[in-house]
Amino acid sequence: MSSASKTISKIVSSSTESLSDIREFVAGQARTHGFPEDEVANIVLAVDEACTNIIKHAYRFASDKQIEISVGRQGREFEVIISDDGRSFDPAALRNPDLKEHLTHYRRGGLGVYLMKKLMDTVEYQFQPGQRNHVRLVKFLPASPSR
């Protein structure tokens, strides 16, 4: 058994209308890699949140740009890399919000990042001036029953 699978990519326009296509693509890939339905739902939601952030913050709702979603396996990791060419935002600003404080002051926004971290095993950002932005989401693959 090889430790890495072929990466499969999908490119969509940077519109909220693309979110349903993105969810369908990621759900199909997660199922192919053997995740149970509750984990498929968690992965799909995390990717939706990452793409929504790109549409809102990196592209500021400009719908004529592109988002690339690449899915593959690296060892025990199911990896989703989401890339865009928009504005990069400061990863330091993406710290966990104080949830109770956030909710009691009825603040919207920021919850997507919190959800991504709750739902996935790893969330990493790669922002370099002049280069594409990448968000890497990882979920550990379910243990193989044959082992």
Binding site: T52, Y106, R107, R108, G109, L111
Partner: peptide, 16 residues
């Protein structure tokens, strides 16, 4: 069938 944080944000926007 499905809700993301954008949907939950709507409840937060109007509850006050």
């Amino acid at each position: 069938s499905y809700i993301s944080s954008a949907g939950l944000g709507v409840f937060m926007a109007y509850i006050e």
